[in-house]
Structures are given as C-alpha cells and as structure tokens.
C-alpha cells in the first residue's frame, strides 16, 4: 500500500466530504430552511412591528444561526460513525486533529457558508437597515466557523449515544454564548454608527483560539467515543 502524504490525505478527505454532502443535497437544505423559517416565525410572532424587528433583528438572526448550526452538527460524524469510516480515520497514520479540522472545515463549507448566503434575505425580513448588513455578514463569516469547531467537540462526545441530540444542545449552546454576544453587539454597534473593530477582533480571536484547540479536544473525544 502506498503511503499517502498528510496534505494529500487532508485534501482527499475534504473532497470526499464535500462530494458526499453534494450527493445528499436535502441534508444541506434542511438546516437552511429551518434558519429562514425561524426568522420568519420571529417576525410573525413580533407582530411585524418594524421598529421592534429592527431592534431584535440582529439577535434573532444570530440565535437562528446558532440553532441551524446545532441542527446540522450531527452530520459531521454521524454517518462516518455508523459505517465505520471514523474508526479507519482514527487508525490512519495521519494526525487525527488535522483530519478532524478538515472534517470541520467541510461541515462549515456545506452548512455555515450557506447561512451567510441567505443572510441578506433574513436582513430584509428583519427590516435591518442596509448599514448593518455588511457587519452582519462579517460576524457570520467570523462566527460560524467557531460554532462548527466547538460543536464538533460536542458531536464527537455524543456520537455513540442513542439520544445524543438533547445532550448535544446542553453541551454546546452555553459555549456559544460569547460568539452570540460579540456578534450581535457588533451589529447593534454598527447600526449606531460606531466602529466595530473591537468586536470583530474578539470574534477573530475566538476563531483562531477554537481552531487551535477544538480539534485536539475533538480528537480526544472521538477516541473516548470509539473506545
């Protein structure tokens, strides 16, 4: 058997994950539809009051993004766990945290990035003034990868459980709070016409921090789940 270099292995894994996701397009679409629906329901529940929607808009869009991410998280490892691919990944000669990082990246590309694409529509739903849209997209760009990275730890811990979903939300959602705080605060601040560099830097810091540490924790968690 020829030895695959680590970089080629990572590329192959990412390509495989993207191909699998593309073949199961409904799985990509469902969290996205959920995302749009939650925002629409909030707007209806708030009585379509323009002023009120403007005030709660950034928070609603972000909470819906958290929930949509939570809904799609299971896909990172579930099918690989069921068919045994995950065990093969752990047995491979390449560093597991790097493979985990690739899988998380693949998950973000198919479930985090689409949230960004529909966000302008939701900004319209929420009557967000056009000045806030750019910052909203920036916070989503910096924040959703962090959500995927932290979420991967939770999925890795619960993947072997029969009813892991509810525990997953209990494990992951409290850890999402800092992202939620800085992201919504950035949008609110931008709407007030104040620079938001500080919040964006905090979001970037959290992203780099999560990218450095979360894959290690995820790899350890996968080893526990598969033991």
């Amino acid at each position: 058997m020829s030895q695959l270099s680590t970089s080629r292995a990572c590329a192959a894994l990412l390509q495989r994950d993207l191909l699998l996701a593309f073949r199961r397009r409904a799985e990509i679409a469902n969290p996205l539809l959920f995302y749009i629906l939650v925002c629409a329901l909030f707007a209806i529940g708030a009585g379509a009051d323009v002023q009120l929607l403007r005030e709660i808009g950034p928070g609603v869009v972000w909470v819906a993004a958290l929930l949509a991410t939570l809904l799609s998280l299971d896909a990172i490892f579930r099918s690989d766990f069921d068919d045994g691919t995950l065990e093969q990944l752990l047995l491979s000669a390449h560093p597991v945290w790097l493979l985990v990082l690739m899988k998380t990246l693949g998950h973000w590309l198919v479930s985090g990035l689409p949230l960004l694409i529909v966000a302008p529509l939701l900004a319209q739903f929420m009557q967000l003034p056009s000045g806030g849209l750019g910052v909203l997209l920036l916070t989503l760009l910096l924040g959703t990868p962090t959500l995927s990275l932290i979420g991967a730890i939770g999925v890795a811990l619960t993947v072997g459980l029969r009813r892991g979903g509810i525990i997953l939300s209990l494990l992951v959602l409290p850890l999402y709070v800092p992202v939620l705080i800085f992201a919504t605060d950035a949008v609110h601040t931008a709407l007030g016409g104040i620079p938001v560099t500080a919040q964006l830097l905090f979001l970037s810091a959290m992203l780099t921090f999560a990218a450095a540490l979360a894959p290690i924790a995820t790899a350890a968690a996968l080893r526990v789940s598969l033991s």
């Binding site: 730890i153 409290p174 800092p178 605060d185 905090f202 540490l213 924790a217 968690a221 526990v224 033991s227």
Partner: peptide, 25 residues
C-alpha cells in the same frame, strides 16, 4: 468519566471567555 472529563476541561477553558464576554455585554 472520560467523556465528562473532556467536557469539564473544555468548560474550564471557556469559563473565563464566557465570564468576560458576559461582563462586556
């Protein structure tokens, strides 16, 4: 116990982040 230990360790790393972000907010 091993799984719970991972959660606890991840939590310890996150508690200061959560605390200061909540204070900021």
């Amino acid at each position: 116990a091993r799984a719970a230990a991972i959660v606890a360790m991840v939590g310890v790393v996150n508690i200061p982040i959560i605390h200061y972000s909540v204070e900021w907010w």
